[in-house]
Amino acid sequence: MDPQITELARVAGTTMVTLMATHTWEAARDGVVSLWQRFQPDRADAVGEDFDATRQELLAAREQGDGDSEAELVAEWQVRVRRLLTAQPDVAVELRAILDELAPRIPTVDPAAVTLNAHVSGSGRVYQAGRDQHISER
């Protein structure tokens, strides 16, 4: 497998699923469907329906805090894009253009924001830090 195709499929699948949970999901859907319409028109409608279904699954997974399901959805779209790229290598140019157009719409995580959670029972201890931590116990 061509490493460039694999990487492009990874980025595309991750980007698509990430955007499914944002207010710009329709633009991502339109880009994906247009890509399939151009290169595999017989599959375009099904891809659009799958995009919508994946979005519903993703929103439900996020609501339930189900990271495993979200990761599976990302992997599913990565495979789908990789198959398209393998069958139609010319897709890569247009896919990159779509990703470049959608990139500014990807939500960014504030690097200064830190969320820590811990659950301890019995005589357990938790040490959490957003940066360096030094513990001296005797």
Rank of each mutant, 00 (worst) to 15 (best):
S69K: 13
G48N: 00
E101Y: 14
D52S: 09
L73A: 03
R131F: 07
A27C: 03
W36H: 00
E72D: 15
T14L: 12
D30N: 07
R131S: 13
R43F: 04
L85A: 03
E7T: 08
R43H: 08
S34Y: 00
Q40S: 06
V11D: 12
A113D: 13
Q4Y: 06
I98E: 09
E137S: 08
A61S: 06
Y127V: 12
H119T: 14
D132F: 06
Q40C: 03
G124W: 08
L85F: 03
E49K: 03
D2E: 13
Y127L: 11
F51C: 00
E101I: 08
F51I: 00
Q133N: 08
M16C: 01
E72P: 12
H23Y: 10
R125G: 02
M16L: 08
R96M: 13
D42A: 12
T18K: 04
S123Q: 14
A12E: 04
D30C: 01
R105V: 02
D66H: 15
G130A: 05
V17C: 00
A60E: 15
A44Y: 03
A21M: 04
D2P: 15
I106M: 05
R131A: 13
A71Q: 13
G67D: 06
V91I: 09
R10T: 07
R62G: 03
A28C: 06
P3D: 09
L95G: 10
T15R: 09
A60V: 09
G65I: 08
H119K: 14
V11M: 12
D42T: 12
D50L: 03
A21P: 01
A60I: 09
V11R: 15
D45Q: 15
R10P: 05
I5Y: 04
W77Q: 00
M16E: 00
A92H: 06
A27W: 11
A113P: 07
A60S: 15
R82L: 10
P89D: 02
T22V: 02
R55N: 05
T6M: 05
D45H: 12
V81E: 07
A53Y: 08
A118I: 05
P89A: 04
Y127R: 10
L85G: 04
R125K: 09
D90C: 02
D42G: 11
L102P: 08
D110E: 14
F39T: 01
P107L: 05
V91R: 10
A9S: 02
Y127D: 11
A27P: 05
T108A: 11
V11Y: 11
D30G: 05
